[in-house]
Design a protein around this nucleic acid. Sequence first.
DNA 1: TTGAAAGCGATACCAC
DNA 2: GTGGTATCGCTTTCAA
Lengths: 342, 342
Amino acid sequence: MVTITDVAQAAGVAPSTVSYVLSGKRSISPKTRRLVEESIRRLGYHPHAGARALASSRTNVIALVTPLRSDLNVAVMMEFVASVAKAAREHDYDILLLTKDEGPAALQRVSSSALADALIVMDIEADDPRVPMLLALNRPAVLIGAPDSTTGLTCVDLDFSAAAAGCVRRLADLGHRSIALIGQPPGVYRRGTGYARRFMRGFTETAAEFGIRAVSRPCPASYEASSRCLNELFAADPGITGLVVHNEAVLPAVLANLRQSGRSVPADISLIAVCPDSMATTQPVPLTTVTLPAEDVGALAVEMTVRQLTGPTTPQTRLLAPRLVTRKSTAVAAQPESEEET
Amino acid sequence: MVTITDVAQAAGVAPSTVSYVLSGKRSISPKTRRLVEESIRRLGYHPHAGARALASSRTNVIALVTPLRSDLNVAVMMEFVASVAKAAREHDYDILLLTKDEGPAALQRVSSSALADALIVMDIEADDPRVPMLLALNRPAVLIGAPDSTTGLTCVDLDFSAAAAGCVRRLADLGHRSIALIGQPPGVYRRGTGYARRFMRGFTETAAEFGIRAVSRPCPASYEASSRCLNELFAADPGITGLVVHNEAVLPAVLANLRQSGRSVPADISLIAVCPDSMATTQPVPLTTVTLPAEDVGALAVEMTVRQLTGPTTPQTRLLAPRLVTRKSTAVAAQPESEEET
DNA sequence: TTGAAAGCGATACCAC
DNA sequence: GTGGTATCGCTTTCAA
């Protein structure tokens, strides 16, 4: 193994000098710098992470806590994880992967054993057991998502409320007066996962503002459930012409159902999906979607983490704007028979 | 911060004794053990990972290299990652997450800086640039997947060849004499990703053994591409009654296409999909699938890693058997008119 | 601008 | 069965 001493000897300087060249914490003569850097490269020196952590109390590792088994939104989840991983590397941090099932104790363990300098925690529930632990740990932390009470917490999230509002506004602008939302599986709301609730609330409220009828329903991830859900929605309001689907898994099922029941998209029903772009283009009709800027969220989460690591910061919650991408599943509402044309 | 010395003092023993209680590397009197364990719990002691790594040259971390951005098989990928993470924790290891884009240099970095004791590398290509690096590093490593040459490597993978054979056999048993395969996107084959090739080869070869006609085609992940692909397959052999889809992304698209072209599943076409169970049940017809035992693969990869860490082992490649789950998308082939009934 | 040396918190060897 | 202590490789203070 190549140590700092080896490098120092090769360069004819003291180990401390090598350390300073690496850290940039004091000025080094150009000549010495050259010498040291040369030796580092020649010997293929990489500082020993453990030794460094021990001496400096910093690991350059961020723990990422993510719900790996959640069937919901696997693709979206993955995008978050990927963007966090990428952003972390850009700041010279590595990612230690913890799963949500490990619970609050895992946070404790990682923090106390100095495995990571900071934590990024995903899939936050309304009353998440990991939150009090996080607060107690007193380590830099960023939540992706937000619990009911965000006091003392730094949170980043998509503005799901705005996403829902955007969907409703678009449908309203197209002349739809009766719209429906197919939501996430019931369990997601039951657990109080923030984004699902916020989306549904935003949907209902914005519809109210626009004075249009809106019904919504959670929907389990199976074909039958989605048929049932769709039927219930149309039973509740037969005049529905606009549909928002906030449930990736049943997206193909919903489209198949609509077709089978003789409703064509977008002629009869305008549909907006909340999903990654990749899913939008593998459906029979390219879907108008609200895209969740996972890339930005990940980058921002890392940035806020690094900022906390660099100096004191004040807790804040930042909500990112969603993007509405228009494709071919939305159209102007058919003229209702009751209204007369001028 | 609570150190081993604090615990030792609280328990009235030497630090080394605490260390031995923890590691079990020498016998401890029941009384001392109680005393020490008590103090550990009371003080909430967790050994400092860096200090431990420095003194013992072991980190209890496994680096997992995974292609986070690959659009293909996100769900399946995630299952692998999840199962590796879970299995690792069961062996008291943590996971350091590296992405494939970081390339071979990342392996080098992680190994040289002693961030991890071993590596698990996913999504291996025929001539993967990470493989020579892995060989050079001389660290315990397990590949999930396999390159062309596996000399000196420990690999775990699904037996995609057997998976394909299983599909063909099933279709043949049901009386289908003309079958087709919709494969992964062309890029996957071009990169020489082992599993895709092995599946396609297995498909063709087994069909030949059974003396039935088989055509296959890669398929890009878009609706249009999948229509085109389907058309081309039927153009190549209008008599196709059995279809294997080894491409999650276009699965809904293929089903929609079949329906639109008036072919019903399973009456006219028997379909077997290679995908996670969750996708099988959100389609209009519950799909007969070949399920990839991701859970087992992850567990086995970790186990083989840990074994290497524990003692000397001989390189070996292990292929796991796929599971064929019968649902409702497969049926006995319609009696061809040309053959007469007895 | 650089060097010497004291820790950081464990492990594991050597004594007893 | 237990204790003392050198050691791991690096950072950072103190001195020059």
